[in-house]
Design a protein around this nucleic acid. Structure first.
Lengths: 134, 134
DNA sequence: TGTATCCTAAGACAGTTGTCTAACAAGGTC
DNA sequence: GACCTTGTTAGACAACTGTCTTAGGATACA
């Protein structure tokens, strides 16, 4: 009977992203931002989504003057981490390397990023040869 | 009102993976394989999932002797591609490079993979310097 | 004070996902 | 023929998602 663990559906993720960008927001602010970004939602929809995020413990709310102000509890970094892990587990046999390879082969990197990637990689390989703990 | 585009939920994905591995399977074969892998599902559950996959057009069925045999229509490669693209779009501002960096920084690669990654990268950078089309 | 605003609350409602029970058909077996 | 064994089918049902309507409490301004 185990209740499913809380997930972050697409629509909630969109709202959460606004909070990451703005730091915090009221329903109306989030709505405006989302409208500007092309999401044609009603006020109530955004309110519902924030509500659901709150019941999942992913944002907190705090009454300020007129309206509630919502703040993210979970960071973008954490969400990215979880998503990537789950992708790697589910479709890359738990091997992040396979995903990296897939990415490099199917999406060309721009030169700056390529250089950065290379340097991270160099460091990783270098370390391995010289000393084994950080 | 636009009907949502079909997605592949987790449980269906698990079944689909069996089809990728075996090439094709009956409900019972899929069930056995999933059981062996730890999924405690009933026969009917697997049947339902295969059915849903079929109505989404992701597998086909074909009556053989006693039972239906299901085959995947969509490949693992395609599914991976879509998932990765959507992850990159949703959480990495459409920049695959950011995801690569994240992966390298947070998950150490094993040496063989590191070497392979490096060679793909070298080739990418080298090409850029020498000639611009493949 | 009445009316226009803005906010929250409560819930509706259809579509999707996760899982299953139960009824029923076809092929063997005694 | 009466019974298993396998398989298919239909449908059930609760939780989750995507979106909204509507009622009701405050605030604000004419």
């Amino acid at each position: 009977m185990a209740k499913r663990p809380p997930t972050i559906p697409d629509s909630e993720l969109d709202v959460l992203k606004v909070l990451w960008d703005l730091g915090q927001a009221t329903v109306r602010e989030a709505l405006e931002t989302l409208r500007a970004a092309g999401r044609q939602w009603s006020y109530a929809t955004v309110a519902t989504l924030l509500d659901r995020l709150e019941s999942k413990g992913l944002v907190t709310s705090d009454r300020r003057e007129l309206a509630f102000v919502y703040k993210p509890v979970i960071s973008g970094q954490e969400v990215r981490q979880k998503r990537v892990n789950s992708l790697v587990d589910k479709l890359y046999q738990g091997e992040p390397g396979l995903l990296v390879l897939h990415l490099l082969k199917s999406h060309p990197l721009d030169p700056d990023q390529a250089k950065e990637v290379r340097s991270v990689l160099d460091q990783m390989m270098g370390d391995k040869g010289r000393k084994k703990d950080r």
